[in-house]
Write a protein that binds this DNA or RNA. Structure first.
Lengths: 158, 158
DNA sequence: GTAAAGCTTCCCCTGCGGTGGAAGGTCAAG
DNA sequence: CTTGACCTTCCACCGCAGGGGAAGCTTTAC
C-alpha cells in the first residue's frame, strides 16, 4: 500500500509517517519504480506499537531504542519494563512537583483576596506575587536536587 | 550598575537578562556613553518579580502581559488572580492526566511479570506494550476533550 | 602600554514531535 | 491532453526559555 493509505489505516498524517521513518521507529519500506514508498501490513502493526508505546509515555528515542534492542538481542521485555519503572518514578516526581505548585498557586490566590489593590508598589509590579524568598515555593532547590534527566512532560500529547 | 553586577544580584546570567529585556519583561535601561547598559535598583526588584511569577507557573508572555496591564490600568491584581485561577485549574487537569498515565504504566509493568519473553511477535516488537485499543489508556479522547490551550508543563523549570 | 575582564550585537543551537510549503515527478480518469 | 490527486525531496518553522560563540568595543588593573 502507498503512504496515504497507510496513514489512513494508522490514523496519522503522511508527514508524520515520513517523520517516523526518519526518526528510526519505522523501517524504510520498499520503493516502487516511481519512487513511491510501498508498505505491507507489518507497517500497520509497527505504527500501532509506536502509538501504544507513546501512550505509555515513551519518547520516540526510547521506542527506537526498544526496537534496536529487539533487533540485536531478541525480546526487549526486560528493557521495556525497566523503562516503565523509570517512567513511573519520573511521573511520581512530576506529580509531586505539580501538586506542590498547585497548592502554592491556590495559596497565592486565596491570599490575594485579603489584599488591597492600591497596595501594589511600582517596582514589584503586583503584590499578589510576593517577591520575598520565604513565601515562594522552593523550585530552585528542587531543580538542583532533582535528577538531571527528564524535563520533558511525559505522555500528555494531543 | 552594569549588567554583570545585576546578574549577580539577581542570580541570573548576563545572557538571561538580555533575553528578558528582549522578551519585554525587563524595561530597556539607560545606556552609558560607551553603550553599556546601566541599571538602577528597580531592575533588581523587577527581576525578583519575574522570578517569583515564574515560580508561580507564569510564562514570560503572561508576565509581560501582567506588566502591560499594570502600565495601562494600574494594579493588575485582578488579572493576576484570574491567571492564578486558570493555572490552578490547568494544574488540576495535568495532575489528573499524569496520575492516570502513571497508573497505566504501573499496570503495564505489573502485567509484564506474568508474560513470557518468548511470546513477543515480530511486528508488535514487544508484547509488554499491548497494541490493542482496549488496554491502552484513552489519551486521544482526553486530548480531544481537553481545552485547546496549555500543553506546556506549567512551572517545573530547572 | 598591554593584558584581562567585561561589554556590545549578531546569528545559530538545544529538545520534542511534529507541521507547512515549494518545486517537481507519477498516475488514473475524463 | 489535461486536470487533479497523490507522491517525492528539501528546507524552514512552531513553542519555550534560554545557551554558545564570534567579532569587535571599553574599561580596569598592573
Amino acid at each position: 500500500m502507498r503512504i496515504g493509505e497507510l496513514a489512513e489505516h494508522a490514523g496519522l498524517t503522511v508527514k508524520t509517517i515520513r517523520f517516523y521513518e526518519q526518526a528510526g521507529v519505522l523501517p524504510e519500506p520498499e520503493r516502487r519504480p516511481s519512487g513511491y514508498r510501498d508498505y505491507d501490513d507489518s507497517a500497520v502493526a509497527r505504527l500501532r506499537f509506536v502509538k501504544a508505546a507513546q501512550a505509555a509515555g515513551l519518547s520516540l528515542a526510547e521506542i527506537r531504542e526498544v526496537i534496536a534492542v529487539r533487533d540485536r538481542n531478541g525480546p526487549p521485555c526486560r528493557h521495556v519494563t525497566d523503562l516503565l519503572n523509570a517512567h513511573a518514578a519520573d511521573l511520581d516526581r512530576r506529580i509531586a512537583e505539580l501538586t506542590a505548585l498547585r497548592d502554592e498557586v491556590r495559596r497565592l490566590r486565596d491570599r490575594a483576596d485579603g489584599l488591597d489593590p492600591a497596595g501594589c508598589e511600582d517596582a514589584a509590579v503586583c503584590h499578589v506575587i510576593p517577591t520575598d524568598q520565604a513565601s515562594c515555593v522552593q523550585r530552585s532547590a528542587d531543580a538542583v536536587a532533582g535528577s538531571p534527566r527528564v524535563e520533558r512532560p511525559i505522555g500528555v500529547r494531543r
